[in-house]
Design a protein around this nucleic acid. Structure first.
Length: 137
DNA sequence: ATTCTTACA
DNA sequence: TGTAAGTA
């Protein structure tokens, strides 16, 4: 499976994303309203976020902390968020299910690994730089 | 127990 | 943004 697809798999419910990003569910939903992210939905209408969504939220958080408003953030990130793909395959749904049994430590390590993986090719990924330090505790 | 939408101090 | 209400 391609990394691109893997990063877009709908795996995390909002509660986990809250822990991973330190953002409140209120904020996360608000950013979705402003089309900064487009998480997938389960049959029961519950949001499922992908690694890409989480990483995007970390960037948003960074910009918010720097005092930008929605307009400013949209301008910085471009306001076209790629919709997270639904866990259509049986395999994908199993992965999403596994996530629920991971400890907070395991979840943070998983995200850290993802951030490092992404930060490879390019230079000091504008976002990755600061956010990454938080996972090196 | 979690999450969702809507509405308002 | 926080939070309460009523659901799913």
């Amino acid at each position: 499976m391609s990394d691109e697809l893997r990063r877009n798999l709908a795996l995390f419910p909002i509660g986990i994303v809250q822990k991973l990003t330190e953002l409140t569910p209120r904020q996360i939903r608000y950013y979705e309203q402003h089309q900064l992210i487009q998480p997938a939905r389960t049959a029961g209408n519950q949001r499922l976020f992908s690694f890409n969504d989480v990483e995007r939220l970390l960037e948003i958080k960074k910009l918010i902390d720097q005092g930008l408003n929605m307009a400013g953030i949209k301008k910085m990130m471009g306001d076209q968020a790629v919709p997270t793909e639904l866990p259509v395959t049986e395999k994908a749904q199993e992965e999403a299910q596994k996530v629920k049994d991971l400890t907070d430590q395991e979840l943070h390590d998983l995200l850290k690994k993802e951030l490092i993986l992404r930060g490879r090719p390019g230079m000091p990924g504008s976002l990755i730089q600061g956010e990454l330090s938080r996972f090196f505790h």
